[in-house]
Design a binder for these strands. Structure first.
Ligand SMILES: [Mn+2]
Ligand SMILES: [Mn+2]
Ligand SMILES: [Zn+2]
Ligand SMILES: [Zn+2]
Lengths: 140, 140
DNA sequence: TTCCTTACTGAAAATCATTTTCAATAAGTA
DNA sequence: TACTTATTGAAAATGATTTTCAGTAAGGAA
């Protein structure tokens, strides 16, 4: 199961969107990074692949990629405008506080907790956000 | 142990900040709500208590309250500019997806998980964000 | 391949939230 | 009460994101 940025372009195409040079540049950029990127960072990097790219197109493309669940927004204390390739299935993020590297992990089990909280509060719990912060092997 | 918004005003005072009518209005507003409020929502509500209030002062007061850890930012899919009175000690948020009501809970135990992830990834894990979403008793 | 419809583009303008500037005001201490 | 200076709201500035628009090109149909 090898995935490449072509997969994303195919998905865009399958949903009636056109595959353009500008979108290729944005898709390649976001697909191939292990750091959450802001629109402006995507712009800077993608413009090295496609000089004529406009920042507006970056915003528009990120919007579509998010809509197709190919990327996801990364929330951080410093800001919440960064994006990363979405995890597959039920996964959560682990972020390096020093260099911003992003890892996914799975295997969290919050059933006991959520059932207990549901009972105590009367809420019907539907989803959860979990995110770990730390230092990566390079930074620690 | 009864706390009132006076506590917050005292804290402001103890940190060398002045207690003004504008700040009273903001503090009263944020202290006494069970919903996360945006600066603009705080403004609208607080202006009912103090008509002359300026939006700028809302921003400035929220900034100070956050700095003193009396309020905390609430991250949501729709936006991350809302604030709520901070929980005491190690607590997490439970949000109603329908009406926006906020509850705190504690008693999560992520030690096993974080140790396991630390071992697998090599990261030194330092903190975590956990947030539950659901429907409150009124909304479900 | 060529044609044709229309989605997509980047530039510029508009909008929106937040921050800065500034002169007047008032909190809090002496 | 007097005085220092933090705080105020209005207005201007900033910065990020969105909208507008006329030209361009993707990609299905012929
Ligand atoms: Mn989970
Ligand atoms: Mn916890
Ligand atoms: Zn790192
Ligand atoms: Zn509710």
């Amino acid at each position: 199961m090898t995935t490449s940025s072509e997969t994303w372009l195919e998905q865009l195409h399958d949903h009636g969107y056109r595959v353009t040079a500008a979108r290729r540049a944005v898709v390649d950029t976001v697909f191939g990074t292990t750091h959450a990127l802001t629109p402006s960072e995507v712009y800077d990097t993608a413009r090295k692949k496609y000089r004529a790219l406009g920042l507006v197109t970056v915003y528009r493309t990120l919007e579509k990629l998010e809509e197709l669940h190919l990327i996801q927004r990364v929330h951080q204390p410093m800001g919440c405008q960064a994006f990363i390739a979405a995890g597959i299935g039920h996964q959560h993020l682990l972020l390096c506080q020093q260099c911003g590297q992003v890892e996914f992990f799975e295997g969290d089990d919050l059933d006991t907790l959520t059932k207990s909280i549901a009972r105590k509060t009367g809420y019907q719990i539907q989803e959860h956000w979990l995110q770990l912060f730390g230092l990566c092997t390079n930074c620690k």
